[in-house]
Amino acid sequence: MFMRIDHVGIACHDLEERIAFFQRTFDLTVVAREINEEQGVKEAMLRISDGQGGGSYIQLLEPLGPDTPVGKFLAKRGEGVHHVAFGVPDVARALEEVGSRGVRLLDETPRHGSMGSSIGFLHPKDVGGMLTELVQAAEGQPETTQEARNADT
Rank of each mutant, 00 (worst) to 15 (best):
G65F: 01
M1S: 13
H7S: 10
D50A: 14
A32V: 08
A94N: 02
S49E: 04
I10K: 10
A138S: 13
D90A: 11
L60E: 06
L15W: 10
R149D: 11
P69E: 07
Y57C: 06
F21D: 13
L131A: 13
A85K: 00
E108N: 13
P142W: 09
S117R: 01
G71L: 08
A94E: 13
I58W: 07
T68F: 05
K72G: 08
A20E: 13
I19S: 02
G53F: 08
I19Y: 00
P142R: 13
V41I: 14
I5Q: 05
G128L: 14
R4H: 09
A85L: 01
R111M: 07
I48D: 00
L122R: 02
A85C: 11
G80L: 08
E37F: 02
L64W: 00
A75H: 07
L60M: 04
L105T: 07
M115T: 14
E97P: 04
A85Q: 04
G55N: 02
S114L: 06
H82K: 07
E108F: 05
L105A: 10
K72P: 07
P124A: 12
S100E: 14
P110Y: 02
N150Q: 15
I10N: 10
G53S: 04
E97V: 15
A32H: 14
Q141A: 09
I19K: 03
H83N: 06
Q141F: 04
E79D: 10
V88G: 05
Q39P: 10
R101S: 13
P124S: 12
G78D: 05
L28D: 05
V81N: 11
E147V: 15
A137D: 13
C12K: 02
E97D: 15
I119H: 10
Q146F: 12
G9L: 08
S118M: 11
V84C: 06
R18A: 15
V135E: 03
G116V: 08
G78M: 08
K76A: 15
G40K: 05
V81Q: 12
K42C: 12
E79S: 11
Y57F: 15
A75P: 12
C12H: 03
G55H: 02
V103H: 01
T153L: 14
V8N: 09
F121R: 07
F86P: 05
V81G: 09
T132D: 01
G55W: 00
G140F: 01
G102P: 09
G53W: 03
R47P: 01
H82W: 06
Q39I: 00
H123M: 08
M3W: 01
V84S: 00
